[in-house]
Design a protein around this nucleic acid. Sequence first.
RNA 1: GCGCCCGUAGUGAAAUGGAUAUCACGGGAGCCUCCGAAGCUCUAAGUGCAGGUUCGAUUCCUGCCGGGCGCACCA
Length: 535
Amino acid sequence: MKLSTLEADLKSRAKAAFSLDDAALAAFALSAPPPHIKADASIAWPISAAKLLKKAPLKIAEELKAAFGAELDPQAVAPGFVNIKLSNAMLFEALKKLGDPDCFKRPDYAGEKINLEFVSANPTGPLHLASGRAATMGDSLARIWRALGAEVSEEYYINDAGRQVVMLGLSLKARLEGKEPPEGGYQGEYLKDMAAAMPKEASGWTDKQFSEYAVAEMLKLHKADMKAFGVNFDRWFRESELHAANASEKALAALKERGMTYEKEGAVWLGTSSVMESDDKDRVLVKSDGKPSYFLNDIAYHQDKFARGFTKVIDIWGADHHGHVPRMEAAVEALGMPKAAFKVIIHQQVFLLRGEEIIKMSKRAGDFIPLRGLVDDVGPDACRFFFASRGPNTHLNFDVELAKKQSNENPVYYVQYVHARIASIFDNAREKGVDPAAAFDEGKVVINDQERALMLKLLWLEKALADSVRDNSPHHLTTYLTELAALFHSFYDQHKVLDPDNKETSAYRLFLLKHVQAVIAKGLDLLGVSAPQRM
RNA sequence: GCGCCCGUAGUGAAAUGGAUAUCACGGGAGCCUCCGAAGCUCUAAGUGCAGGUUCGAUUCCUGCCGGGCGCACCA
């Protein structure tokens, strides 16, 4: 029985024993007890239920304990915990369930179609380091949601229309002609490289052709960079697709029809504040020059996403855009979409340090650190594990030199080493003629403390995934994997797996390690990190 | 000024309101005749300040101090 199944089972027993409704049991959860408590799982619910039930917590714990039955060896402990232990048979059964490819699927994710948009950097320069954070978060979350049973489409939005793209084209043209980019153009070296590689006939191109060429080339770069980072987007969505379909006009018409707009001072406004009451002021949809605002285009884009049949539309934005969240939420609601179907995940920004100095990254000024360089230097595994290990709200100062120096001590290797070590043990078993899948008597094996800790830890993977989606962050998974790795390394140091004199123990330990290896591989895969056989 | 985010050991991080605050790097002391030492064991060091709520606060609330970001008919 999986821990989530066990939790549900115990919860329903509590529900029956105290004649309660679901709301009263909202806080009912299994959790891992602190190390000094000799139990496998712990329930703190009796303490929180004391007020509701008007009983002493410990009394509730005693009654809950009575409802659980003896096979879990439940103990009621002050101030009101119930601690349980899993029998060996339960442990083995639960471990075998981990092999099931669908074992993390949850019913509430069945039929969920999620559109997850992230990175979406402007195509005016190479991807810089900070994009690594959004890319890691987005792709890891997508993988985790898929493991839970959702369908996820990873999407990248390309602003390939508007003034910046014109400027990009003009800057490229200038470089081709050996001139400096115009005022407000892009100064970076990458346009010199691009100009150098252009076809001969380019000198006769129109400005529009330069723009299109530059965007197309930049897009190739972004795609290559994301691929090198292990992120595969399902859709690269161009802003120009929206314009070709008159999407902004349609979005505007929809908003007008729903009575959400008004005209003032020659512009068309959306009542994000006055009608929807979720923003601090109303926002312009059509500027007084008659052109759609960026906001309207963005609304059209989100309308398009919903029209494609997604049940959830999620954006990942840097904190520099957090002020836009209320207006976008209001707009989605104004379109008639359910509030809960749209979500913006905000992550704090990444600051780049060069020594003590903070680099103000600017594609225009050409001073920024490309993502590709770091990925090539330290590898995508170390990069992704590094970015994935922090919660979205940490304010991250990224020292490039330090990152290169420290890549050798990145915890990712500590975790990957588990996988490689176990692979090596299985190689060894084969060499010695030991059957790696030999049967053993589950009823007779003696499980030592470290093995028990390992087994339990494997079962808590479920919780790490649940926590990750709850907080929209994969960092719970990196923490979990590091803890699991520590338990393994400690076990490995003290216990020999292959023991020719004790075939039962060997078989049992190989069985255990097979599952440790599988969980490590699964966890790393959900982070987009490789699980090597050798290092 | 208003809004959002952050402040945990020397450094970087972890901890759905739970029990003795966890981990890595760095510091100190040890461990390779034995399946991979990218490892293990031991050790020193921490919740910005002041209140409040609570049986219980790193977590929630208020104020202060310190830092980041945002407050466009730009995209």
